[in-house]
Design a protein around this nucleic acid. Structure first.
Lengths: 155, 155
DNA sequence: CAATAGGTAACTATCATAGTTACATGAAGC
DNA sequence: GCTTCATGTAACTATGATAGTTACCTATTG
């Protein structure tokens, strides 16, 4: 895996969970789908659970399942639950007193970045997990590809 | 220093160079301004030199100076010279063959990110080094603060 | 030729994060 | 109640990116 690790794990897992038809999937099954370790799955999906996006049940027959309908989960919700922004925040060391140059930079550049972040949030708020799943179905149909129950593809 | 390291060093140095009145500044002098090491300055400013933003002269009386007027250097130019994007690229491991889910993710999220990156580039293209310097002058005037020749402020 | 200053390779230190191991907690089935 | 399964979480390791540092090269000026 390269970058955007948590977000990628989360979205990938969410699509698989949605396409699993309401049945719970264990961390191990999800991890096999993403070619990663179950603990990594628990860590990442745990943040989505705290964000009200997923629910987890323990013991026999337990696992992860969606806490809301797929069309009520937006990419913005997922990013918010993970604390990811996709736009670099340009944070400055608050330890030292900053000079006028640093102040200008944070204001000018930082102002633009805040605006851009707002635009991105607006866009991401309009894309739902249901959209992603539908897109996967379309691709699978076009390619004549049958999505297996538990895939073991790279990444 | 926290994040956006290269970009912050570059912009901070550019403002100081612009405000130095056309005279060249040595790596050591710039490094003292940014509280960092001269080699870090050479590394970062070297990329700006290759991007045609700065010029460097060696030997006695040498140092760094702007290769273009300050109002002809935009923040977009600086980002481009540094190879920084400020928007996370969501790059996927090309090593493994990707499944339909990964394809959908890169298309949906990646498409939004490309749009956002274009918007950000447009904004950054309208902010020049001259704008930053003017803002610094304004702040210094308001605060009754005299910008020293060589500052040694944090970051 | 000596002094100065950028150019660059090579190494170290730090930090973030993925991966892994180990164990505690809780729920279902016998 | 006990066993089994699955999440929750702490702790450690491995890896990669990057800032800092040292050392030495080349180029230019006096």
């Amino acid at each position: 895996m390269k970058r955007n690790g948590k977000l990628f794990v989360a979205l990938h897992a969410l699509v698989h969970l949605d396409r699993h038809g309401g049945r719970a999937m264990t961390s191990e099954a999800v991890a096999a789908c993403l070619s990663t370790h179950p603990v990594v799955v628990r860590r990442t999906l745990g943040e989505l659970r705290q964000g009200g996006i997923l629910q987890a049940t323990r013991g026999h027959g337990g696992g992860w399942s969606l806490a809301k309908p797929a069309d009520a989960i937006s990419l913005r919700d997922v990013c918010a639950a993970l604390g990811e922004s996709l736009v670099d925040p340009l944070q400055v060391d608050p330890e030292h007193p900053s000079c006028a140059v640093v102040g200008s930079l944070t204001d000018s550049l930082g102002g633009v970045l805040v605006e851009i972040q707002a635009l991105l949030d607006e866009r991401l708020g309009r894309i739902t997990l249901a959209d992603l799943s539908a897109d996967v179905t379309e691709r699978a149909g076009v390619a004549g590809y049958r999505l297996p129950e538990v895939t073991n593809h790279g990444l």
